[in-house]
Amino acid sequence: MKKKLLFLLSMLGGGIIGGAGAAFFLKNNPGAWTKTEVLGAAAAFLLAFVGQVVVHEFGHFLFGKLAGMRFYSFRVGFLALEIENGRLRFRLYKNLGYLGLCVMLPTQEGHNRKTLMLYMVGGLVLNLVSLALCLYLILDRQVTSGFGLWFACSTVFLAFVLFLANAMPIKNSSNIATDGKYLLDGFKQSPDYYSLADILSLNALSLSGEDPAVFMPRFLQRHQQTEDPTFKVNFLAYNYLYYLSTGQPEAAFQTMQEMEPFLEQYPPTQRKEIQKEQLFAYSFLQPAPAKAKEIYQQIETRLALGKSADDYRVQAAYALYIIQEPEKARHFISEGKKVADLSMMKSFVPLEKDLLHTLEKAAQEQHLETV
């Protein structure tokens, strides 16, 4: 209820500002609009929207650098600039993933309270700065008509909406916390804050391709330090991938079992991602056909839509060890190998390749046995 109220209030505020901007524009541009003016206004709004996403993420970058963090990636929509092998590279993603994302890596000691709060406030600050600048240009009549005025009015509106959307201290349905949530919990020094900070560290390090064997050990007991079931699952999921990466299948399976009692309380939009690995555990790590088939029925549609390496890897394991269809498994393995390098979580790309290779060998052996 609280989230809905905050959302409605932000939309109401944005609507008031947007309406005022539109009224100001129409007052200074009387008469019927031509087709060119309509297209110009639409282009100005779109440019202002992209601009505000860039401004917000640049704020995170700027304040993150001030906090002493290391830059890894700056992404807007499908386009990204990333550090790869010590060099800055341009990358085009096939999936949208994030509207905007600036990944800054923590120090070896992790995120302390001040550095993380400084990083988080940066996007909000630059949204407000751009809002104030464009508002000044409008009120001082530096821009009075045409594309410039519509762009300035659009920027004021969108900067306000993006500021409110990111400043509201909530977690969305995918369990992603807003900047405001981090800042409020940081001020309060609540238990949630330290969990959020560590999850952010794990996400950033995994995206950047850091070696899990290096950064994961200090987080392995982290799930025992929180009572929140969502955080427990998040930490345990990373533990599971770490154990797989370091050749500890029994520990990975035990971690999956430890996760299971908390899955019902995990956000529904993300639960199927964990259930994928649950299916893999009961297909490959310790095959249990009845359990695997039960899980498969719950996520069959999700798997059919998936096009990532882990989607294909899970389907290959199920086809190979549960329904024993090696030809189908080999198809999934082939598709998985094509997209393995495209995984966003670069730290676990070697794991995906190793598992696909292991499955490929097993599928070949099973195929030969049936010939």
Rank of each mutant, 00 (worst) to 15 (best):
P261T: 07
A177W: 04
V76G: 10
A20H: 11
N175W: 12
V55W: 01
V121Y: 01
Q52G: 11
G123W: 00
Q286K: 15
T358V: 09
P30K: 11
C102E: 01
G18W: 01
L184I: 11
N175A: 15
G306V: 10
H60Q: 06
E82N: 12
M256A: 13
E258H: 08
A42W: 04
D140Q: 13
G21E: 07
F78H: 13
G209P: 02
E294A: 15
Y194F: 13
Y321L: 08
T115I: 09
A317M: 06
M168E: 05
L133C: 06
I83E: 09
S190T: 06
C102K: 03
E227N: 10
Q278V: 14
E250H: 09
L26K: 12
T34R: 14
V214P: 03
K3Y: 06
A43V: 14
K65Y: 07
L116W: 04
F219A: 07
I17F: 00
L351G: 01
E327A: 13
H331Y: 10
A292K: 05
F231Y: 01
K361H: 10
P191G: 09
A42L: 15
E260S: 13
R141D: 03
E227T: 13
K276V: 07
Y242G: 02
F187Q: 07
L105K: 05
E360H: 08
Q286V: 13
G13S: 05
S130L: 14
A48K: 01
L101D: 11
Y312N: 10
I295R: 07
K188Q: 14
K114S: 04
E360I: 08
F332L: 06
L116S: 01
A23Q: 07
L244G: 00
A41R: 12
T230S: 12
G86K: 06
L355Q: 08
N166W: 05
Q224K: 14
R302G: 07
Y93P: 02
E84W: 04
Y296R: 08
M11G: 04
A316H: 00
P350V: 11
Q257A: 14
L5P: 02
K232Q: 05
L359V: 06
P261M: 10
A252C: 12
F61L: 15
Q221R: 15
S130H: 08
V54P: 00
E300I: 12
Q108R: 13
Y240F: 15
S173I: 10
A159V: 09
H367F: 11
T144V: 14
Y240P: 06
H367T: 14
Q108A: 15
H111E: 07
G19D: 08
S190Y: 02
S10Q: 00
M344S: 12
E109K: 15
P106C: 11
Y93D: 05
Y93V: 07
F215D: 02
M69N: 12
D211G: 01
Q221K: 15
T246V: 15
G186W: 02
F45A: 14
I333G: 00
Y98L: 12
Y136W: 14
L139A: 10
I170Q: 06
A309S: 15
A317P: 01
A288H: 02
M11K: 09
E258A: 15
V314N: 04
Y98R: 10
P350Y: 01
E335Y: 12
D185K: 06
V50R: 06
A152N: 02
Y193E: 07
E37P: 03
G64I: 04
L124N: 04
S130I: 12
M344P: 03
T269W: 04
L139E: 09
G68F: 00
N166F: 08
L285V: 08
V349Q: 06
G77T: 10
F71N: 05
N95F: 13
